[in-house]
């Protein structure tokens, strides 16, 4: 299945600067998505320290993803 990942902050150095598409096995979780992104993102610490979210909440690693879903990868935050 295909998952679209919106990129923010330091992740804008990857993909086309706003989006990456990842192929995962059906039933894959957020944790699996994090592992799959290691092929694209050459900063393992950044990936480990990042969260994933939809437009309403941060997702836990055990969250199962559905085909065609778009999620955002959120590096450590520093607003203000």
């Amino acid at each position: 299945m295909k998952i679209k990942v919106r990129l923010f902050g330091a992740f804008r150095n990857y993909g086309n600067g706003s989006l990456l598409e990842v192929e995962l096995d059906p039933g894959a979780t957020v944790a699996a998505l994090r592992e799959a992104l290691r092929v694209h993102v050459k900063e393992p610490r950044l990936l480990s320290d990042s969260a994933f979210a939809d437009e309403t909440a941060v997702l836990i690693d055990a969250q199962v993803l559905r085909d065609g879903t778009t999620v955002a990868v959120l590096p450590p935050v520093c607003g203000g």
């Binding site: 902050g9 836990i60 690693d61 450590p76």
Partner: peptide, 13 residues
């Protein structure tokens, strides 16, 4: 340079 920040928790569960 992107500044470092505070990690949001998504690892629970």
């Amino acid at each position: 340079e992107w500044l470092k920040g505070h990690a949001l928790c998504g690892h629970a569960g």
